[in-house]
Design a protein around this nucleic acid. Structure first.
Lengths: 187, 187
DNA sequence: CTCTAAGGTGAACATGAACTCCGGTTCCGA
DNA sequence: TCGGAACCGGAGTTCATGTTCACCTTAGAG
């Protein structure tokens, strides 16, 4: 993630933040498609400066994704506070998806065929998976999720929803169908 | 789609097919990422020949996607033959997804952010949507799909499943969850 | 205030992939 | 068999983007 926090000259630290902010905003809007030059311009800096702080585009992206994952981990922790297991689960699910909705880079990172996946990379740095597992287990134990529901299924569902984040609130409909099931009354 | 079927010299027609076959196979394996040079080589031809038959890469891709969509339309028509509305629906759903599983280009085309979407483009050339709508309606009328299920929801579900086509049979699990719902016994 | 090493700059370079072009080759009707 | 229109080949062109680097600027310790 390239994070030499301490002993940076004041202007350097300021510029590093500027890069991160500019990149976050642009990546969030248009995903991987933004160019380094654009980010530099938006940050009011030269491209060279980007490369002083981040080895390459991938590293910059990694920093952004990492940031978002930390935010989501916080969010998951908060969800786990809820008394009701189902509320905890729903809070996690919607919180996760609303974050994804707001950040195209995050979506691309998770949906893309990258190898190894960001999912795995970040899993090593945060305890997001652990929290998710606990929340899922609570909901299963309380009989609010089907017996065989696993944390992996949470990933399936979120991937499915993210794939439907194309304008409008299509993904919410998708989640509703998943939560309620698509079967009719007969049978 | 660039399809001057008639009055092509014998060798030209042969080569056109070779290009289409090579492209179909490579696109199916690796999606949009294949290079024109690769396709040419695989077809045993020069790049120039690709461009004689197809204006650009997009046009070639369009031809391939169109082909697959025709196959899927045939498949949908067959599904609609089934007596049982639920069998018809399941046949359509799994047929569609198995096709998608076998063709990365198809998936990328449908999942990507293209504008206008391939979905719309091809919808104009085949009556796939019409058939899908009929099948969905039958299942709803028979009470096998929830009252408010629409053809658009079919798209949501398939997008969701396709987003989970990453090795293993993850997407089948996803579809199972959607079909059966993820709720547990309580409440 | 001064000096210097850390930091910044952006034109130039490197890379890779789509696409072009024209000399050579092949099909096919007469 | 022959002429020429249609077709093929693949090295070279173009374009887009990530990345570098030689030179300039500035923070901040002494």
């Amino acid at each position: 993630m390239t994070a030499p926090e301490r002993s940076l000259r004041a202007d350097a630290r300021r510029n590093r933040e500027a890069v991160l902010d500019a990149a976050a905003e642009l990546f969030a809007q248009r995903g991987d498609a933004v160019q380094m030059d654009e980010i530099a311009e938006r940050a009011g800096l030269g491209v060279g400066t980007l490369y002083r702080h981040f080895a390459d585009k991938r590293a910059l992206l990694a920093a952004i994704i990492g940031r978002r994952f930390e935010a989501i981990t916080t969010l998951a922790r908060a969800a786990d506070e809820a008394e009701d297991p189902w509320v905890a689960f729903e809070t996690l699910l919607y919180g996760y998806l609303e974050s994804a909705e707001a950040d195209a880079a995050f979506r691309f990172a998770l949906l893309g065929p990258e190898e190894p996946s960001w999912n795995d990379i970040v899993a090593e740095k945060t305890d997001f998976s652990a929290i998710t597992e606990r929340i899922v287990r609570r909901a299963v134990d309380a009989g609010r999720l089907r017996e065989d529901f696993r944390a992996d299924d949470f990933v399936l569902i979120t991937r499915g929803a993210m794939a439907n984040m194309t304008g409008a609130g299509a993904w919410r409909r998708h989640v509703t169908l998943v939560l309620e099931g698509i079967r009719g009354p007969e049978r």
